[in-house]
């Protein structure tokens, strides 16, 4: 499948996050010729082990993330970061986990926004909000280059795109910038040919970055 890079919004130190940044980012995509092509939503769920009454909570190294990608709705990706395990399954695994009553979905985060077509690129700009509230937790984007599936072969082109994109956004004088953090795909046994599993790993990385950005 086409190679994809995830970028997250890194606010300047002390700057606050606002939905205005999302509006401006969308305006930027449109200003360089992006044509709006619908909405998208990816869901990320934090699972934590449940302990029996009176027992101490099992180790948090067993926390895992569940990712449901907008472009693979029938699939579910479970990521155990501490163990570098990525399990691909049908989305019915969520029902299995519910029946087992050993792990509980603690927080559900929705990544949602607009999708744009820009030549050979597909761009998605979105906000990250918890399912139970409207509190903005972050802003991110997906940059997908449709003609290529090799991560290495597309690297230079993607870097150039990100550079141009960062320049475009900088003209708006917003309090921060978009940043791409490389995920270590080989840790999860993933190769150069891009798959939806790579996207799931990128969401886990992006999530960490968003949490870190909010803490700072």
């Amino acid at each position: 499948m086409p190679v994809k890079w995830l970028l997250h919004w890194q606010p300047n130190p002390g700057a606050t996050l606002s939905s205005q940044i999302l509006t401006e980012a969308c305006a930027c995509v449109e200003s360089v010729g992006g044509a709006r092509a619908g909405r998208w939503k990816t869901t990320l769920t934090f699972y934590r082990p449940m302990a029996r009454d009176g027992a101490s909570a099992p180790e948090s190294s067993r926390d895992f993330l569940g990712v449901q990608l907008h472009d693979h709705p029938g699939k579910y990706y479970s990521i155990l970061r501490a163990h570098r395990i990525l399990l691909e399954s049908d989305s019915s695994i969520q029902a299995v986990m519910e029946k087992l009553q050993s792990y509980k979905a603690r927080v559900v985060l929705n990544f949602e926004g607009f999708q744009y077509q820009l030549g050979d690129f597909q761009i998605r700009v979105g906000k990250c909000v918890p399912s139970q509230s409207e509190n903005l937790r972050g802003i991110m984007m997906e940059v997908e280059y449709l003609p290529l599936s090799s991560i290495e072969k597309s690297r230079q082109l993607m870097e150039e795109f990100v550079e141009i994109w960062q320049e475009t956004v900088s003209k708006k004088s917003l309090p921060g910038h978009f940043l791409h953090i490389e995920s270590n795909f080989t840790d999860y046994g993933l190769h150069d040919y891009y798959t939806s599993q790579h996207t799931a790993v990128q969401y886990a990385t992006c999530m960490q970055q968003l949490i870190a950005a909010v803490r700072n």
């Binding site: 082990p49 029996r52 101490s56 087992l100 009553q101 050993s102 792990y103």
Partner: peptide
């Protein structure tokens, strides 16, 4: 399920 994991043994 291992000891202590889960609301009930599974």
């Amino acid at each position: 399920s291992g000891p202590n994991l889960g609301v009930v043994p599974s």
